[in-house]
Protein backbone atom coordinates (compact mmCIF):
# COMPACT_ATOMS: atom_id res chain seq x y z
CA UNK A 1 0.00 0.00 0.00
CA UNK A 2 1.43 3.43 -0.90
CA UNK A 3 2.62 5.75 1.84
CA UNK A 4 0.14 8.63 1.54
CA UNK A 5 0.45 12.18 2.83
CA UNK A 6 -2.31 11.41 5.36
CA UNK A 7 -0.01 8.84 6.93
CA UNK A 8 2.57 11.54 7.57
CA UNK A 9 -0.13 13.65 9.22
CA UNK A 10 -1.21 10.67 11.35
CA UNK A 11 2.39 10.03 12.38
CA UNK A 12 2.93 13.68 13.27
CA UNK A 13 -0.31 13.55 15.26
CA UNK A 14 1.04 10.57 17.18
CA UNK A 15 4.11 12.47 18.33
CA UNK A 16 2.00 15.54 19.12
CA UNK A 17 -0.47 13.58 21.22
CA UNK A 18 2.38 11.83 23.03
CA UNK A 19 3.71 15.29 23.94
CA UNK A 20 0.22 16.31 25.08
CA UNK A 21 0.01 13.21 27.29
CA UNK A 22 3.14 14.38 29.04
CA UNK A 23 1.70 17.81 29.75
CA UNK A 24 -1.96 17.10 30.59
CA UNK A 25 -3.07 16.79 34.22
CA UNK A 26 -6.70 15.72 34.23
CA UNK A 27 -7.19 11.94 34.02
CA UNK A 28 -10.17 12.21 31.67
CA UNK A 29 -8.16 14.31 29.21
CA UNK A 30 -5.29 11.84 29.53
CA UNK A 31 -7.48 8.88 28.63
CA UNK A 32 -9.21 10.69 25.76
CA UNK A 33 -5.77 11.62 24.42
CA UNK A 34 -4.62 8.03 24.74
CA UNK A 35 -7.63 6.91 22.69
CA UNK A 36 -6.80 9.60 20.11
CA UNK A 37 -3.19 8.36 20.02
CA UNK A 38 -4.41 4.85 19.29
CA UNK A 39 -6.67 6.20 16.52
CA UNK A 40 -3.79 8.10 14.91
CA UNK A 41 -1.63 4.98 15.18
CA UNK A 42 -4.33 2.84 13.58
CA UNK A 43 -4.67 5.32 10.76
CA UNK A 44 -0.92 5.25 10.11
CA UNK A 45 -0.80 1.45 10.28
CA UNK A 46 -3.34 1.21 7.46
CA UNK A 47 -0.42 1.93 5.11
CA UNK A 48 1.12 -1.48 5.84
CA UNK A 49 -1.40 -3.63 7.66
CA UNK A 50 -4.75 -4.88 6.42
CA UNK A 51 -7.93 -3.58 8.03
CA UNK A 52 -8.36 -6.73 10.17
CA UNK A 53 -5.04 -6.26 11.94
CA UNK A 54 -5.54 -2.52 12.29
CA UNK A 55 -9.03 -2.89 13.76
CA UNK A 56 -7.76 -5.52 16.21
CA UNK A 57 -4.93 -3.24 17.32
CA UNK A 58 -7.18 -0.19 17.53
CA UNK A 59 -9.87 -1.95 19.53
CA UNK A 60 -7.27 -3.27 21.95
CA UNK A 61 -5.90 0.26 22.40
CA UNK A 62 -9.32 1.74 23.04
CA UNK A 63 -10.27 -1.08 25.39
CA UNK A 64 -7.02 -0.49 27.27
CA UNK A 65 -7.92 3.16 27.70
CA UNK A 66 -11.40 2.16 28.87
CA UNK A 67 -9.95 -0.28 31.41
CA UNK A 68 -7.72 2.40 32.86
CA UNK A 69 -10.72 4.71 33.04
CA UNK A 70 -12.66 2.04 34.89
CA UNK A 71 -9.79 1.56 37.34
CA UNK A 72 -9.56 5.27 37.93
CA UNK A 73 -13.31 5.52 38.52
CA UNK A 74 -13.27 2.58 40.95
CA UNK A 75 -10.43 4.21 42.77
CA UNK A 76 -13.00 6.89 43.76
CA UNK A 77 -10.35 9.51 44.09
CA UNK A 78 -11.33 13.11 44.33
CA UNK A 79 -10.46 15.20 41.36
CA UNK A 80 -6.92 16.35 42.15
CA UNK A 81 -6.15 20.00 42.50
CA UNK A 82 -4.24 21.11 39.39
CA UNK A 83 -0.53 21.38 39.89
CA UNK A 84 1.18 24.72 39.49
CA UNK A 85 1.69 25.75 35.89
CA UNK A 86 5.46 25.41 36.25
CA UNK A 87 5.18 21.61 36.50
CA UNK A 88 3.41 21.43 33.16
CA UNK A 89 5.77 23.95 31.58
CA UNK A 90 8.82 21.96 32.69
CA UNK A 91 7.33 18.73 31.38
CA UNK A 92 6.38 20.40 28.12
CA UNK A 93 9.87 21.81 27.66
CA UNK A 94 11.41 18.44 28.45
CA UNK A 95 9.13 16.95 25.79
CA UNK A 96 10.28 19.53 23.24
CA UNK A 97 13.89 18.71 24.08
CA UNK A 98 13.11 15.04 23.55
CA UNK A 99 11.75 15.84 20.09
CA UNK A 100 14.98 17.70 19.34
CA UNK A 101 16.93 14.67 20.52
CA UNK A 102 15.01 12.48 18.07
CA UNK A 103 16.03 14.74 15.19
CA UNK A 104 19.65 14.52 16.30
CA UNK A 105 19.63 10.70 16.32
CA UNK A 106 17.98 10.51 12.90
CA UNK A 107 21.07 9.08 11.15
CA UNK A 108 21.38 6.34 13.79
CA UNK A 109 17.75 5.37 13.24
CA UNK A 110 18.30 5.39 9.48
CA UNK A 111 21.20 2.97 9.82
CA UNK A 112 19.22 0.74 12.17
CA UNK A 113 16.00 0.55 10.15
CA UNK A 114 16.86 1.48 6.55
CA UNK A 115 13.75 -0.17 5.08
CA UNK A 116 11.35 1.83 7.24
CA UNK A 117 10.27 5.25 5.85
CA UNK A 118 11.92 8.23 7.49
CA UNK A 119 8.67 9.76 8.80
CA UNK A 120 7.77 6.47 10.47
CA UNK A 121 11.16 6.21 12.15
CA UNK A 122 10.98 9.71 13.56
CA UNK A 123 7.38 9.51 14.71
CA UNK A 124 7.99 6.10 16.31
CA UNK A 125 11.12 7.27 18.13
CA UNK A 126 9.49 10.51 19.30
CA UNK A 127 6.36 8.75 20.58
CA UNK A 128 8.36 6.01 22.31
CA UNK A 129 10.76 8.47 23.95
CA UNK A 130 7.94 10.72 25.14
CA UNK A 131 6.21 7.64 26.55
CA UNK A 132 9.44 6.63 28.27
CA UNK A 133 9.68 10.08 29.79
CA UNK A 134 6.09 9.78 31.01
CA UNK A 135 6.96 6.39 32.57
CA UNK A 136 9.99 7.79 34.34
CA UNK A 137 8.27 10.96 35.53
CA UNK A 138 5.60 9.57 37.81
CA UNK A 139 5.06 6.72 40.27
CA UNK A 140 1.32 6.93 39.80
CA UNK A 141 -0.09 3.71 38.26
CA UNK A 142 -2.30 5.62 35.80
CA UNK A 143 0.52 7.75 34.42
CA UNK A 144 2.86 4.76 34.38
CA UNK A 145 0.38 2.64 32.44
CA UNK A 146 -0.31 5.46 29.98
CA UNK A 147 3.44 5.95 29.55
CA UNK A 148 3.99 2.25 28.84
CA UNK A 149 1.08 2.16 26.39
CA UNK A 150 2.59 5.22 24.67
CA UNK A 151 5.96 3.43 24.39
CA UNK A 152 4.15 0.46 22.83
CA UNK A 153 2.32 2.82 20.45
CA UNK A 154 5.69 4.23 19.40
CA UNK A 155 7.13 0.79 18.85
CA UNK A 156 4.12 -0.43 16.83
CA UNK A 157 4.86 1.40 13.53
CA UNK A 158 8.50 0.26 13.50
CA UNK A 159 7.34 -3.29 14.11
CA UNK A 160 4.45 -3.12 11.65
CA UNK A 161 6.66 -1.95 8.79
CA UNK A 162 8.75 -5.11 9.22
CA UNK A 163 6.27 -7.73 10.35
CA UNK A 164 2.61 -8.39 9.60
CA UNK A 165 0.95 -11.43 11.09
CA UNK A 166 -2.45 -12.13 12.58
CA UNK A 167 -1.37 -14.16 15.61
CA UNK A 168 1.51 -11.86 16.54
CA UNK A 169 -0.81 -8.87 16.31
CA UNK A 170 -3.31 -10.76 18.44
CA UNK A 171 -0.70 -11.43 21.14
CA UNK A 172 0.34 -7.78 21.03
CA UNK A 173 -3.27 -6.70 21.42
CA UNK A 174 -3.56 -9.12 24.35
CA UNK A 175 -0.40 -7.66 25.85
CA UNK A 176 -1.85 -4.14 25.63
CA UNK A 177 -5.04 -5.29 27.31
CA UNK A 178 -3.28 -7.19 30.08
CA UNK A 179 -0.96 -4.24 30.65
CA UNK A 180 -3.95 -1.91 31.03
CA UNK A 181 -5.70 -4.44 33.25
CA UNK A 182 -2.62 -4.74 35.47
CA UNK A 183 -2.31 -0.96 35.64
CA UNK A 184 -5.99 -0.64 36.47
CA UNK A 185 -5.67 -3.34 39.15
CA UNK A 186 -2.66 -1.60 40.69
CA UNK A 187 -4.57 1.65 40.58
CA UNK A 188 -7.38 0.00 42.48
CA UNK A 189 -5.16 -1.77 45.00
CA UNK A 190 -2.55 0.87 45.48
CA UNK A 191 -1.88 2.54 48.80
CA UNK A 192 0.11 5.37 47.26
CA UNK A 193 -2.62 6.43 44.86
CA UNK A 194 -3.50 9.50 46.84
CA UNK A 195 -0.62 11.45 45.37
CA UNK A 196 -1.65 13.88 42.66
CA UNK A 197 -1.46 12.67 39.11
Amino acid sequence: MPFASWDVVALALMAGIAWLLLVLEDWRSLLISLAALEAALGSALLAVWGPTLVVMHLLAGWLAAAMLGLGQTMHRRKHPAPRPLTGRVVRGLAGVLTLALVFSVGPVLARAWPTVPEAVRWAAAATALLGLMQTAWSRHPLRLSIGLLTVLAGFAPLFAWQHADLLTTGWLAGFQLLLAWSGSYLLHQTAVGEEAL
Partner: peptide, 18 residues
Protein backbone atom coordinates in the same frame (compact mmCIF):
# COMPACT_ATOMS: atom_id res chain seq x y z
CA UNK B 1 0.09 -2.45 46.98
CA UNK B 2 2.82 -0.94 49.12
CA UNK B 3 5.06 0.94 46.78
CA UNK B 4 6.70 1.00 43.37
CA UNK B 5 7.92 -2.63 43.22
CA UNK B 6 5.09 -4.11 41.19
CA UNK B 7 4.93 -1.06 38.96
CA UNK B 8 8.62 -1.39 38.24
CA UNK B 9 8.16 -5.09 37.43
CA UNK B 10 5.36 -4.08 35.07
CA UNK B 11 7.51 -1.39 33.47
CA UNK B 12 10.59 -3.58 32.98
CA UNK B 13 8.46 -6.24 31.35
CA UNK B 14 6.63 -3.82 29.07
CA UNK B 15 9.84 -2.03 28.06
CA UNK B 16 11.72 -5.27 27.40
CA UNK B 17 9.13 -6.66 25.02
CA UNK B 18 9.47 -4.06 22.20
Amino acid sequence: ALGPGLMRALAWNALGLP
